[in-house]
């Protein structure tokens, strides 16, 4: 059986403030595994430790303790990096280069022969939609264009594993969809994609597995379905009722009540006798438009776990 694409075991990173005894734990015993061929979403709020984890994996930061491997090679490994594509967070590139020059530099560092470099660069420039900007220096690029250039340089070596730090950052909705499509296309090609984000809709839409990190600790991990509690949080109901009919009795225990003329929508809490409520609504002359159970979403899970992390003893101690 092949090694996992990424294996992280009890990874810890502690920064010490110079001339002070204060220490900041950026990562606390972080462990997770990314299987080959998966799309893995690494989710967390700003400052959670996503970028620190990724930079540690890519050899930019040395861990204080713990271990990690990329494609079976313990980090930091040049052999592994040769088979990995990496997009840094808010990519900074040499702004005097054009995209073909940037990709040529990346290709040289990967040891790709000249003819192949040119061929791959041409294909990638078109793939990320920068064909019209190929003669412009990166200095003139918008944030979204830089992100596309970053994606292109990350794919120059036709990597087995692609690590993307906030790949949707700075992109408009069309750009975000294109990146999502690109990630799915990479998985279809048999590649593994590990990406960090705090845009939960992207995670729910495309990932096979997710890990939620907050305050330097993994809060939970699994498939998006596993992470979301399967219990019903409530029932969303939409009815149409004459504007002059009083609705106080109907909305007594409800949440998110909205009335717009004859249209009334609300959420009944879990455990409410919905049948009895609907009978009362019928009796009041209401016409039922829709009744739908409301499950927990990934966003609910994320917000709950981040809130738990923020109120943990370590967080309250100020993490010192």
């Amino acid at each position: 059986m092949a090694d996992p694409a990424i294996e992280v075991r009890k990874l810890t990173k502690t920064y010490r403030t110079p001339f002070a005894r204060k220490k900041v734990e950026a990562l606390r015993s972080v462990s997770f595994t990314v299987e080959r061929g998966h799309i893995f979403g690494f989710v967390g709020p700003n400052g959670a430790g996503k970028t620190t984890t990724i930079r540690t994996l890519m050899g930019l930061i040395k861990p204080s303790s713990g271990a990690a491997s990329l494609l079976g090679h313990p980090i930091p490994s040049r052999a592994a990096r040769a088979r990995v594509g990496f997009l840094p967070e808010t990519p900074y590139f040499y702004d005097y280069l054009t995209v073909p020059e940037l990709l040529d530099l990346a290709g040289r560092l990967f040891g790709i022969p000249h003819a192949e470099r040119v061929k791959r660069a041409d294909r990638l420039i078109e793939r990320v939609g920068l064909g019209r900007a190929r003669s412009q220096s990166l200095k003139k690029f918008s944030k979204g264009m830089l992100q596309r250039a970053g994606l292109a340089q990350a794919l120059m070596n036709d990597p087995e594993l692609v690590v993307l730090d906030e790949p949707m950052s700075g992109l408009d909705p069309i750009g975000r969809k294109e990146v999502r499509d690109l990630i799915l296309e990479l998985r279809d090609q048999g590649k593994t994609v590990f990406f960090s984000t705090h845009i939960l809709s992207d995670v729910e839409a495309i990932t096979d597995r997710v890990a939620i990190i907050a305050r330097g600790e993994i809060q939970s991990q699994g498939t998006p379905t596993e992470l979301v509690a399967q219990t019903i949080l409530g029932v969303e109901i939409a009815i149409r009722i004459a504007a002059e009919v009083p609705i106080d009795e109907l909305t007594a225990n409800a949440a998110k009540v909205r009335r717009n003329g004859e249209d009334l929508s609300l959420v009944l809490p879990a455990g409410t006798d919905v049948d009895a409520w609907l009978q009362r609504a019928h009796a009041a002359g209401a016409k039922v438009i829709s009744v739908a159970p409301r499950h927990e979403t990934l966003e609910d899970t994320f917000l709950r776990q981040v809130a738990n992390a923020d109120s943990s003893p370590a967080a309250l101690e100020g993490r010192t």
Binding site: R55, M58, G59, L60, R78, A79, R81, A82, V84, F86, P88, P91, Y92, F93, Y94, A106, L109, F110, G111, G150, Q153
Partner: peptide, 14 residues
Amino acid sequence: QRRTIHAIVSKPIE
């Protein structure tokens, strides 16, 4: 300082 090094040393270069 400009973090241009991030995209470089993450490639197979010592």
